[in-house]
């Protein structure tokens, strides 16, 4: 596919979501509601690692890194930032009809954009984050892979080997109790965990490029997607209500009536042990 007179390169697309910095999310202690005002927007941290991996691979093999994001117009900020990390090209997918998309519609839109991109140049690898820290579903990456019919490799903690010639990739996947090593054919879609790399410090010219870069904007006139599959209309899941986790029930004070420490310890152990000890499975 990418054989250009003997030279192998890989083109990598990175899907990047701009998210509110949930570590800055604060609860109003009085009303127990979420304070969103003034919370900074950041690149979804897992996606920053996906981008870093893409840049490393590009620098090793040659090729291009193209960053895609679907979101409101303000998301250009995160895309400019991606350019300042060293990405070659950045595209924002923004349109009112995209708003309110759940993961099914989101993966539809991103896939549409990727397919348009692939009419211009081939893509060998798509990198996503493990999950977004706001929606927290981890569903968009698998959704795109399914739509494209590409191999899906989730929770990737290491790219062991990539070989554009043999059109193969070998990766480590993080599992609950260890990891596994997999080989897949290219093109493929990876979702990555934070352990995959450390984010490097980009050279200054890339930062200046990020500051001057004009992000490409695509809307549905560019993508021509089926309007019934977009936004709220195209989203089967529907948030019927949101709330904050319920306040905790009033607890029990142990040993108020001058019990000795030993008595209280025994009382506490009685309360806890049934809950924390189970027979070996």
């Amino acid at each position: 596919m990418n054989i250009m007179e003997g030279a192998f390169v890989i083109n990598i697309a990175v899907c990047l979501k701009q998210v509110p910095d949930t570590s800055e999310v604060r609860l109003d202690p009085k009303t127990n509601t979420l304070k969103r005002e003034g919370i900074p927007s950041i690149i979804n941290p897992y996606d920053a690692h996906a981008l870093e991996e893409a840049l490393t691979l590009r620098d090793q093999v040659g090729g291009q890194v193209i960053v895609l994001s679907m979101g409101p117009p303000q998301a250009v900020q995160s895309l400019k930032k991606a350019i300042s990390y060293g990405a070659d090209r950045a595209i924002l997918l923004t349109d009112r009809v995209f708003a309110g998309s759940d993961t099914l519609a989101t993966s539809y839109i991103l896939t549409g954009a990727l397919q348009k991109l692939m009419q211009e140049e081939p893509i060998d690898l798509i990198l996503c984050g493990k999950q977004a820290i706001d929606g927290d579903t981890a569903q968009v990456g698998p959704g795109i892979a399914s739509r494209l019919g590409w191999p899906l490799l989730t929770y990737v903690s290491k790219v062991e080997k990539i070989s554009p010639q043999a059109r193969e990739i070998m990766v480590h996947r993080k599992l609950e109790e260890g990891r596994e090593v997999l080989r897949a054919s290219l093109p493929a879609l990876l979702t990555v965990v934070k352990e995959i790399n450390e984010i490097r410090y980009a050279p200054l010219p890339d930062l200046i490029r990020g500051a001057t870069y004009a992000v490409e904007i695509w809307n549905n006139e560019d993508l021509h997607l089926d309007p019934t599959q977009l936004g709220l209309k195209g989203s089967p899941t529907w948030v019927s209500k949101t709330g904050t986790p319920p306040l905790r029930e009033k607890g029990e004070m142990l040993g108020k009536d001058q019990a000795s420490s030993a008595q209280i310890a025994s009382l506490l152990a009685e309360r806890l042990i049934p809950d924390i000890v189970v027979p070996n499975r």
Partner: peptide, 23 residues
């Protein structure tokens, strides 16, 4: 919502074009 469940569910829901609620 294990590693396997979260890996699999997104693919299946997309192919069945249905809604999926995570975790």
């Amino acid at each position: 919502a294990t590693t396997t469940g979260r890996d699999l569910s997104g693919s299946v829901a997309t192919q069945l074009a249905t809604g999926l609620t995570a975790d």
